[in-house]
Nucleic acid binder design. Structure first.
Lengths: 125, 125
DNA sequence: TCGTCATTTCGCAATAATCCGAAATGATTT
DNA sequence: AAATCATTTCGGATTATTGCGAAATGACGA
């Protein structure tokens, strides 16, 4: 109770202070994505992505929406969090990896979800 | 070269994502302080404070100014860094520890430097 | 109900961050 | 030059973060 706000700030900043998590946030600027779409775009184990998403969610930067067996994540509407994100976009927009992600994001959004998720299942086999 | 900006952002956020470092930045809002003043206010080993200061400096949030055997640190003038800090003040101002630090900062600023630093020397003995 | 699929949780190994005291550095004073 | 003082760097132990594969969970369809 003595340092609630300080702790909140630190937790929020920690959540942002990771390249993969910044890339996830940047990806979500163009709209919600399901976990398998993010996993495919960032090319990491789905368990890894899931943990990053969980961290971002706990810190209030993203929100989840369940739809059948899929879980979609989108940028949070919390004003403070949104404001903090806004100050990052200018930085991130110039980054090569973030740009590449955005391009891949456009592609993956055009593919039906069933296909994307099937592709992952095949990769695993 | 492929992800320079992303790396910069992550380094900056990592530098901010620590309670002691946020408290240091908040302290410096009221003007520059020398290392011994910060050390005394935050009650940590001077080597620890020094490492935190070094990290904040490398990340561009603070600048150093040497004067004799003292080293003063002040908030950086870099616009991006300053902007990121600005978005934190609203969060931090409500925090009890940060408020207490600010009060102690006012006190320590009134004391001549020689006295503050002597006090530390005594404490060590 | 059983199998399948997307996601999450768990266990664990590897890496990074944090803190301190001791030693090193640089500047000042005697 | 030697002693003193503020600060930094170093060595280390301790703790946190990260990433993966394997197992668990929950939802869907046969």
């Amino acid at each position: 109770m003595t340092n609630q706000t300080l702790r909140n700030s630190v937790d929020g900043l920690k959540a942002l202070a990771h390249p993969v998590r910044l890339r996830i946030l940047a990806l979500l600027r163009d709209g919600e994505l399901c976990v398998c779409q993010i996993t495919q775009t960032l090319e990491l184990a789905s368990s890894t992505i899931s943990e990053h998403l969980s961290l971002l969610r706990k810190a209030g930067f993203i929100e989840e929406r369940k739809e059948g067996k899929w879980v979609f994540y989108a940028l949070s509407e919390i004003p403070e969090r949104l404001a903090l994100c806004e100050s990052l976009w200018t930085w991130l927009e110039g980054d090569a990896a973030v740009k590449a992600d955005a391009r891949n994001g456009v592609k993956v959004r055009k593919i039906p979800l069933a296909v994307t998720c099937c592709a992952m299942a095949k990769k695993r086999a």
